[in-house]
Design a protein around this nucleic acid. Structure first.
Length: 512
RNA sequence: GGCCCCAUCGUCUAGCGGUUAGGACACAGGCCUUUCAAGCCUGCAGCCGGGGUUCGAAUCCCCGUGGGGUCACCA
């Protein structure tokens, strides 16, 4: 039997980190066993524009390289893949349950239900609804349903114990007497999640339902739907939820704005977002995939991080490239306790992946940030292309995210130097430094060739000869030509700028 | 509150009856060094508590405690 897994997002307008982790596990399981991964859209209850709200989700998965074998835009033999297109199918399945005596129309009014619920609450008892029509003969129930629109409820069998053999949690049990008869079809004919999801999983021939633990309780009802339909349930695996950083609380889809801290805002502004944009877009925060995409994280790093959150290969491996993850993934090594999301570790992994990325790919990833910041214009000239390559090489391991090109190498691409005042005061506005720089400008004017080794040699010779501390000179030079106290090696900086530009910037600094 | 799930360094995890409880991120210190990174070395830090079972428990059982999830004509 081929393994078929699925991920079923609601079109919310963003791809949530927690959701991706769940989707990734499904995808890995399918790939590991040569099966299929299906994307299905749970849009039964959405009023909003589904297409627009779905696009960011599809984009996110594509960016991550998590490709679906069936679903939106690729279709497949078991569609439709949108719940909104399966209304008639759900009605038909509900009728089947009614005819088999496993479901019934409920005449109770909302008021009656509310009253009963409140009474139960006041008595501190759980409210278990059993509609009076549940004992109607199937034919009678069908007649009632044909007469007028009524909600349909599942007839939960009495006095039974339900046992789920969860692939991650082991045996989980429920007493059916504690399960209220759930509505499976509204009076207007729309299906409810617990029912639609089962019908869909049946239609899509899903073999393994891997989903977040928050669905564990739902599984009892779903088990009963399978039973009523006369079908064997698939394998279930409930993975623990992903929690907020430094917390045990679920990384919630609600209230994601709270993750937009001052630090996060600064990072987004650094790549060109305005405060207005940050506030307006609900997908620009660290709980969504888009955030990492915008900051220039390598998608491979994010996938590695997420795959490693709640699953491990062994007792030591942290960097697990995708092919290795596919080859080794299994539900048996998925943890059964929640894990909190750790931005620091993700950042570290991003650096690990960036380090081994081929130069051409680094350049391709960095250029868009330079373009967006107005530092280079497209199409890039051959000269600019070469400059980008040299700057990236000089940045070396400092580059962890593509957007880091702005922090470490931005000054190469603009004639005006923006000075960090604190650094300028500390390194340049000092007794004797301006005179030193003027002197050194002469040395640099005579250095040939003007490449890193020659510049280094010339400056060191100068320092030795004049008894100048190399550090004092280098710091002053760095801040003078780049404006900032951090960045690539000084000799690389000077060589890349070239003699003329170096001397021009030196004059610029001395004129301040 | 009912039901269900969970519990090893701050965080991610290894461990599946006998280990000096291992690794990673973060943090601290050191080396290197023109800055910042990187790299290398060192350090800090953990089995929620209590009972059992056993020669022996982080590991098995029970009870607490704590955390989480879920209780809709949402998904």
């Amino acid at each position: 039997m081929t393994v078929r897994t699925r991920f079923a997002p609601s079109p919310t307008g963003y791809l949530h980190i927690g959701g991706v982790r769940t989707a990734l596990f499904n995808w890995l399981l399918a790939r590991r066993h040569g099966g299929q991964f299906i994307l299905r859209i749970d849009d039964t209850d959405t009023e909003r524009n589904v297409a627009a709200a779905l696009q960011p989700i599809l984009d996110g998965f594509r960016w991550l390289g998590i490709h679906w074998d069936e679903g939106p835009e690729v279709e497949g033999p078991y569609g439709p893949y949108f719940q909104s297109q399966k209304l008639e199918r759900y009605r038909q399945a509900a009728r089947q349950l009614v005819a088999a005596g496993h479901a019934y129309p409920d005449l109770s009014t909302k008021e009656q239900l509310d009253t009963a619920r409140k009474a139960a609450e006041a008595a501190k008892k759980p409210y278990i609804h059993r509609g009076p029509e549940r004992d109607l003969a199937p034919a009678e129930a069908e007649r009632l349903l044909a007469e007028r629109p009524l909600p349909v409820r599942l007839k939960v069998p009495l006095g039974r114990k339900l046992v789920l053999q969860d692939r991650i949690r082991g045996a989980v049990e429920w007493q059916t007497d504690l399960i209220s008869d759930p509505v499976i079809l509204r009076a207007d004919g729309r299906a409810l999640y617990n029912f639609a999801t089962v019908v869909d999983d049946v239609d899509l021939q899903i073999t393994h339902v891997v989903r977040a633990e928050e669905h564990l309780t739902n599984t009892s009802v779903q088990l009963l739907v399978y039973e009523g339909l006369g079908l064997p349930p698939p394998e279930f695996a409930h993975v623990p939820v992903v929690c907020e950083p430094q917390s045990r609380k679920k990384l919630s889809k609600r209230d994601m704005k709270k993750f937009v801290t001052a630090e996060v805002r600064a990072k987004l502004r650094a790549v060109g977002f305005s405060d207005a944009e940050i506030d307006a877009q609900d997908n620009l925060n660290p709980a969504t995939v888009a955030y990492y995409q915008e900051l220039g994280y390598l998608p491979t790093a994010l996938v590695n991080y997420l795959g490693r959150l709640g699953w491990s290969l062994d007792d030591k491996t942290e960097v697990i490239p995708l092919d290795q993850m596919i080859a080794n993934f299994g539900l048996d090594r998925v943890k059964d306790s929640p894990a909190s999301f750790d931005p620091d570790k993700l950042y570290w992994l991003a650096g690990e992946y960036m380090r081994v990325l081929p130069p051409a790919e680094k350049a391709a990833g960095c250029v868009p940030y330079l373009v967006r910041a107005g530092r280079v214009a497209e199409p890039l000239s051959g000269e600019t292309q070469a400059l980008v390559g040299r700057v990236i090489a000089a940045c070396g391991d400092r580059l962890k995210l593509f957007s880091d090109i702005l922090t470490y190498g931005g000054f190469f691409f603009t004639p005006e130097v923006r000075y960090d005042e604190a650094a300028f005061t500390k390194r340049v506005r000092k007794e004797g430094i301006p005179a030193l720089l003027r002197d050194v400008a002469g040395v640099l004017g005579a250095t040939n060739p003007f490449d890193a080794p020659a510049v280094e040699q010339a400056l060191q010779q100068y320092c030795t000869a004049k008894g100048v501390k190399a550090a004092d000179l280098n710091h002053a030079l760095r801040v003078s030509v780049s404006g900032v106290p951090i960045g690539p090696g000084l000799y690389d900086i000077l060589a890349i700028l070239g003699r003329a530009e170096t001397l021009r910037r030196l004059e610029l600094a001395l004129a301040r």
